[in-house]
Simulated assay, not measured.
Amino acid sequence: MSDHLAAGYDLVVFDLDGVVYLIDEPIDGAPEAIGRLRAARTPVAYATNNASRRAADVAGALTRMGVPAEPAEVLTSAGAAAALLAEKLPQGSPVLVVGADALRAEVRDAGLVPVEKSEDEPAAVVQGYGPEVGWRVLAEAALAVRAGALWVATNTDRTLPSPRGPLPGNGSLVAVLRTALDRDPDLVVGKPEPALFTTAAAQSRASHPLVVGDRLDTDIQGAVTAGMDSLLVLTGVSTPADLLAAAPERRPTFVAADLAGLFRPADELRVPLEAGESGGWTVTRDPGTTTLSGAGDPVTALRLLCAATWNGVPLPALRAGSPEARDLFRAWGR
């Protein structure tokens, strides 16, 4: 048996926002954890739905944060979307870009021509996150899609994590067009689609990769779809309450407070924990209620409670049987 979780895998694929950094600030302990993986010669890759930066820019930003990275290790939804369009459209086709300069550059490098107006008769609209996206370009995109352009979204993340709390993400901007057009995008490229993960594994020739993410609806669901093990870290968007209520297709293999969990024994992170008692916590089930008592590591309590909620116990039926459990529920927003 491997002495810690990461040692059991031949590639670790990290999401970025909410896992390695928040906006441009590294999350405490993240550079040290990734440095430890590199020291052990464990291959790493980074798969991000954020389409506002190119791979080289992401690698440079990571390196400045103390996480040395190469562009080849970074897979972005912008690059994946441009590659997909290049497969579907003739070279030189006009594509209306809704997003940042990075997405525009990826489209251009794929042999397509970025345009800004529906009058340019774009063959496709590609939509990715960009902090400057506004009504004017969204209006042009709506007109182009109505005229028959293929509509491709890099991702549908409703929010982006930040030190100030969740901010509107590309999914919120996609929702603007969805409302105006009364239809969904033709294609969504990024997570939870598995392509970023399967491409990372293929590039590293990995047979047993681990996906690390902070979002159940993108990172974890994408890993499940790709048939890969996953670790949910609680440093970003998804909360303990979200995990308790997770549908089967959004359930991780492991859960940890942060990236330090990569160096704990896998059996201390596996979810759900069916034992009913562990690490100072006890879960008892009575007709109509499930009670958490005792004290200890919050992640252990979460794993124990997932065994209940994932087997049909509704969240309102959870009860606190000790002051520590009551404090924990309050911290989880229950």
Rank of each mutant, 00 (worst) to 15 (best):
H4R: 11
A6S: 15
Y9Q: 13
D17T: 06
R38G: 08
A40H: 05
A40V: 01
N49K: 00
N50C: 08
A51Q: 07
S52C: 05
R53V: 05
R54Q: 14
L62H: 02
V67T: 09
E73T: 10
L75R: 14
S77A: 15
A82N: 12
L84W: 13
L84T: 13
P90V: 02
V98C: 06
R104N: 05
E106L: 00
E106R: 09
V107P: 00
D109T: 09
A110K: 08
V113Y: 05
P114E: 12
E116V: 13
A124V: 12
G130N: 04
R136H: 13
R146N: 10
V152P: 08
T156P: 10
T156H: 08
T156K: 14
R158H: 13
L173P: 11
L173N: 10
V174S: 11
L177C: 04
D186F: 00
L187T: 11
P192W: 12
T199G: 08
T199M: 15
A200Q: 08
A202E: 13
A223W: 13
A226I: 07
M228N: 08
M228Q: 15
D229S: 14
V237D: 07
V237A: 14
S238M: 09
T239M: 00
A246D: 00
A246Y: 03
P248N: 06
E249T: 15
V255G: 04
R264P: 01
R270I: 15
V271I: 15
V271C: 06
E274Q: 01
A275F: 11
E277R: 14
S278M: 12
G279T: 10
G279H: 13
W281N: 04
T282G: 06
V283L: 15
V283D: 14
D286T: 03
P287A: 14
T289K: 11
T290F: 01
T290G: 09
T291A: 00
L292N: 10
G294Q: 06
D297H: 14
D297F: 13
P298M: 02
P298C: 00
V299C: 01
A301T: 03
A301R: 06
R303D: 09
A307V: 02
T309R: 02
W310G: 11
E324W: 10
E324H: 13
R326Q: 15
